[in-house]
């Protein structure tokens, strides 16, 4: 370039040239239809958070059921003709107690048994007169369980009418159910992420179509495709973050409220039932952290999706532009 200072067209004047000049964003915000996209992302983030929360709850609950159940096994002793039930119970207790890994052995006495059966058979039962099986409840060390097969075999051989129930079938059914629920939840979650991505793809393409003249000029002044993509990505990161924050926020509020409703109202019989079934309804620290992670993931996903959409299509707006 020529030495411009030596041949000024106009006399050089003093202007505030060291002042910072405001930089407008190259792709104007108005070219991105932001509010609709924010709303969609917020709804998706909310639903995805609910799904995640549900998955957490089911997982936790199944876990605690499983723990409770696997901490205990039961020996059932049915009355057999000609055998004294109390003697049978004592020998069953002895056999079970001899295994390492057994923490305590408890014969459920007549009074407790009657209480258990009261809802079905009514009060004032005299169990001595009824052919009701008796139970020995055995609590075991889950990390070092006793050899159940040997125990069952020994009981069967030595105590007539005795059988060991380690609740395995029950645990297995529970686990399957929980897994199915969790997988369904994750599937829904993935579908929602895909829907979010597709929405962002369409929004980005719309923004590009509305900014065709800007993209053209950017090409002409030598901008690289990645630079152009970054201009769009900035907006979409912002929109994604805004939507995800709103959705995640409402989901967290939702879970806090449900947690409060389920646990903070012990007088309410409904909440007692809910709590008995699901434990405390709150999703725990892990659940809340995963919602925060989800907010982060959705905003990054939004930004990257728009970036790749721009990169995929921006080339076609350049050389074939016009019509030649």
């Amino acid at each position: 370039m020529p030495d411009l200072e030596t041949k000024p067209i106009k006399p050089v004047e003093k202007t505030p040239e060291d002042a910072e000049h405001k930089q407008h964003s190259i792709v104007p915000r108005s070219s991105v239809s932001g509010s609709t996209l924010t709303l969609v992302v917020a709804i998706m983030a909310f639903l995805a958070s609910l799904t995640l929360g549900a998955v957490w709850t089911v997982n936790d609950t199944a876990q605690s059921w499983q723990n409770d159940v696997s901490r205990e096994i039961t020996v059932q002793v049915r009355p057999v003709d000609g055998v004294d039930l109390d003697t049978a119970l004592i020998s069953a207790r002895q056999i079970v107690g001899s295994y390492p890994g057994v923490r305590s052995v408890n014969v459920v006495d007549n009074v407790a048994m009657a209480a258990l059966l009261e809802p079905w058979l009514g009060g004032g039962l005299n169990l001595e007169e009824l052919p009701v099986p008796r139970l020995v409840s055995v609590s075991i060390n889950e990390s070092n369980p006793p050899d159940m097969e040997a125990m069952a075999a020994q009981l069967k051989a030595n105590v007539p009418g005795a059988s060991l129930d380690n609740h395995r079938a029950w645990i297995e059914r529970l686990t399957t159910m929980a897994r199915t629920t969790i997988l369904t939840g994750l599937l829904i979650f993935v579908l929602m992420m895909i829907a979010t991505v597709l929405t962002v793809v369409f929004a980005t393409r719309g923004a590009m179509a509305g900014s065709k003249h800007i993209i053209e000029v950017l090409h002409f002044v030598g901008a690289e495709q990645s630079y152009i993509a970054t201009q769009f990505q900035k907006h979409f990161l912002f929109l994604g973050l805004r939507g995800a924050l709103a959705g995640g926020f409402f989901a967290i509020v939702f879970f806090l409220f449900v947690g409060w409703w389920a646990s903070g109202n012990p007088a309410d019989p409904t909440s007692n039932q809910v709590e008995a079934l699901f434990g405390t309804f709150g999703i725990g620290i892990g659940g809340y952290l995963s919602i925060l992670l989800l907010i982060f993931i959705i905003s990054v996903l939004t930004a990257l999706t728009s970036r790749f959409t721009v990169l995929r299509h921006v080339g076609t707006l350049d050389r074939s532009s016009g019509d030649g």
């Binding site: 000049h21 930089q23 407008h24 190259i26 030598g222 690289e224």
Partner: peptide, 13 residues
């Protein structure tokens, strides 16, 4: 974009 920004655009990109 302002005139200043328009002229500076090639450098900015």
């Amino acid at each position: 974009l302002t005139l200043y920004e328009n002229v500076a655009l090639p450098l900015r990109v």
